[in-house]
Amino acid sequence: MALNTPQITPTKKITVRAIGEELPRGDYQRCPQCDMLFSLPEINSHQSAYCPRCQAKIRDGRDWSLTRLAAMAFTMLLLMPFAWGEPLLHIWLLGIRIDANVMQGIWQMTKQGDAITGSMVFFCVIGAPLILVTSIAYLWFGNRLGMNLRPVLLMLERLKEWVMLDIYLVGIGVASIKVQDYAHIQAGVGLFSFVALVILTTVTLSHLNVEELWERFYPQRPATRRDEKLRVCLGCHFTGYPDQRGRCPRCHIPLRLRRRHSLQKCWAALLASIVLLLPANLLPISIIYLNGGRQEDTILSGIMSLASSNIAVAGIVFIASILVPFTKVIVMFTLLLSIHFKCQQGLRTRILLLRMVTWIGRWSMLDLFVISLTMSLINRDQILAFTMGPAAFYFGAAVILTILAVEWLDSRLLWDAHESGNARFDD
C-alpha cells in the first residue's frame, strides 16, 4: 500500500549564491595573561575582544583620537594649579581661619623630617597626573615632529594605576569627618577644581587605549598563520617573532617567553612588605597634641575612634588600611606557593584573586592621604596640633611594595603550573 505524501511548494523562490571570495581570516594573537594562541577576527570600533580561555580583555573598544586626548590633557593642565594650590577646605580653629590644600599637606610631611613619605604622596597625587598630561601632550606634538614615541607609550600603561586623584578625593571626605570634632569646616574653591580634575582624569584614563596608539604610530604586520613560536610582548602586546637582537619589532624591548626574574622580584617585594606591615600596624601612625597632652593612634585605634562619629567612614578606612593590605599579602603568598608547588586545582579562583588584588591594591594609600591633609588643617603649635607617627613611612612603603609585587608577577606562570593543553579552566 503506497502512502500519498503531499508536496510542499515554497511560496518564495530560494536563491543560492556561491561564495565568490575567501572568507576573511583572523590574525593570530597570544593572550598576555595566559599565553593562549588564538585567531582574533577583525574588530570594529566600539567592540571589545576577550581571550577565549581566561576571559582577559585583549582589545578595548573604547578609543579616543589623539586630538581629543590632547584637549583633555590641556584642560587638566589648566585645572591643576587651582586643584593643588587653592584651598580645598576652610576650618575655623580657636577663632582663626585655616586653609588646607594639597601642596601644603605634602610640605608639612616633608617639613617634619619625613621627606620619603611626603614624596610618596607627591608622586601619586601630583607627579603621576602631571606625567600623564605631559605624556599625552608629548605624543600629540611628537607625532607631528617625527619624534620617538616608544618610551612614552611604554610608560603610559604602567602609569595608570599610580594616578590616585580619586583616592585622594575620598581622603578629603575622611579628613573632614575627623577634623569636624575640633573645628567648623567649609569647602574651599580649590575643592571644585579638584573634583573637576578627578572627573576629567577618570574619563581620560578610561578612554586612553595605549594598544590602539601603538597600532597608529607603529603598525606591524600581524601573524596570519598559526605558529607556536609566536611570542607576545608584555610592553606593547604585539604578537610576532623577535628581531635579530631578540627584541620586539614594535617597542624594541627584549621579547622573552616569560617575564625575567618574575618570581624572585615578586618574592622579594612580598617578604619586604610583610616585614614592614608589622611596625606599620604596631607603631603610632598619627599623633595629636591637645592642650599640651599627647595622644597617639595606631591604624586600628584611629579607626575605632573614627567609628564613634561615623561608622560608615570608619568601615571604608578599615577596608583600605587593614583589610586590603593583608588580603593582598595572603593572596600573593598563596599564588606564589601554588606556582612553586605546581598546583593544578582552583586555577579559576587564583586568576580571579590576582585580578582582584590588581584592582584594589592602590586604595591602601588612602590613610597616607588623610594624614597629609589633616596635617595641613590642624597645626596650632602646642594648643592643638596633628602630626604623623613613625608607622606612616612603614605603611606607605608596604603598600608600594605590594603594588610592585602584583605588577611583577607574570600571570602566565600560573598556567605553566597548571596542566598543559587546557582550553578551559575551572575549579
Rank of each mutant, 00 (worst) to 15 (best):
Q180T: 15
H418G: 12
G389F: 00
G118H: 04
D60Q: 08
E296C: 14
C34Q: 00
R150I: 05
L66W: 15
H90S: 08
G85L: 06
G61H: 15
I136P: 04
Y168W: 12
E419D: 12
L153T: 14
I131N: 02
V170C: 14
S273N: 08
F74C: 12
I131V: 10
G292M: 13
I274Y: 06
P222N: 05
I303F: 06
A405W: 08
L354Y: 07
D243C: 05
N281I: 06
A268M: 02
L234H: 13
L79Y: 15
T334Y: 13
L337C: 11
Q112P: 10
A405K: 04
T402G: 02
L277F: 00
S321A: 10
R258K: 05
I185R: 01
G361N: 01
T11M: 13
L263K: 14
I96L: 08
Y241N: 08
N148W: 03
Q382T: 14
P10D: 14
T67Y: 14
E42K: 14
A269N: 03
S372K: 14
T117L: 02
I316G: 14
Y394A: 02
S301T: 07
L69E: 06
I106N: 03
V170G: 15
N281F: 02
I287V: 09
L149V: 13
N422S: 09
P284T: 05
S48N: 15
M72Q: 11
M109I: 10
W162I: 01
K265Q: 07
N209P: 08
F141A: 07
I285S: 01
C233F: 00
G142S: 04
P325A: 06
I91P: 01
R226Y: 15
L401P: 05
L153Y: 03
K12T: 09
I172K: 02
A18D: 11
C248K: 00
W267V: 05
Q264H: 02
V406S: 05
A187S: 15
G118M: 02
W64Q: 15
G113A: 13
Q345T: 12
K342F: 11
G293R: 13
D367S: 00
S309P: 06
R260W: 08
S193K: 03
F333L: 11
A175D: 01
H418F: 12
D381G: 13
A187M: 15
L88A: 05
I131D: 00
R259H: 10
I371P: 04
L153K: 01
M76I: 10
D367H: 00
M103I: 04
V102N: 03
I403P: 03
D35F: 06
I303Y: 07
I131T: 14
G188S: 08
A56M: 14
L255C: 07
F38D: 03
W359P: 01
N379G: 01
C31H: 00
Q55A: 13
S273D: 06
I403T: 02
I383L: 12
H418I: 10
F122I: 08
V174W: 01
H340S: 08
